[in-house]
Amino acid sequence: MNRTLFNDNVTGALEFTVSWEMDGIRHEEWFLGRKVNPVNDIFPRGMREALEGKGEGESVAFTYEPRMCIPRFKESLVRILPLDRLRKKTRFGQPILPRLGRFYPQGHIDGLLDVYPDTLTPFRLTGLTDKSFTADCNHPLATIPVTIEAAIQYLQPRDAGTYGSLTHWREATCDWGPGMQTRHNGEPTDFFHDAFFQIRNENIAPNAPCMDNAAERNLQALQDRVLTPDMRVLAMDAATSPHMAGRYDAVIFTQVFEYLADPVGVLRSIAAHLAPGGMVLAGFGNAYDKDRVIQGWTELHEFERMGLILEYLRRAGLDGDARTFSRRNDWRDQDDPRFLETKGVSDSIYMVCGRKR
Rank of each mutant, 00 (worst) to 15 (best):
R268K: 15
A282G: 06
R247P: 00
L234G: 00
A287R: 14
T298A: 12
Y64F: 12
P82N: 13
P82L: 11
P82V: 13
K74Q: 14
Q295E: 02
G246M: 01
R34V: 05
I70C: 00
D175M: 05
N286G: 12
G107V: 01
D321C: 15
V251P: 01
H108M: 08
M211R: 02
F62T: 02
E299M: 07
R45V: 13
D118H: 08
R328T: 13
G285R: 04
P122L: 02
K35C: 11
G246V: 01
H168N: 15
G161H: 06
G161A: 06
D289I: 06
S76L: 13
L97S: 13
V39S: 03
S326E: 05
L141I: 07
M22G: 05
G246Q: 00
F6K: 03
L318G: 01
H243C: 06
I349Y: 05
A239F: 11
G277R: 10
N218L: 09
E341F: 10
P157T: 06
E21G: 08
A271V: 11
H273P: 02
M22H: 13
Q153M: 07
K131S: 15
I199P: 00
E202C: 11
N40R: 15
W297Y: 12
Y312D: 02
S348R: 08
F192V: 12
R314H: 07
V39T: 05
G164L: 03
T129Q: 11
T121C: 03
D212K: 10
L141T: 07
Y154F: 15
N37D: 12
H108I: 00
C353G: 07
L128H: 09
D118G: 03
E311V: 04
R87G: 07
M68C: 12
R91D: 08
Q295D: 02
M180P: 01
D8G: 12
Q156K: 15
F284P: 06
C69N: 10
V280Y: 01
G46P: 06
F62N: 01
V256D: 04
Q220D: 14
T298Q: 11
K35Y: 14
G320F: 11
V78W: 12
R268S: 04
A282L: 07
P242D: 05
F43R: 03
G177K: 03
C174V: 10
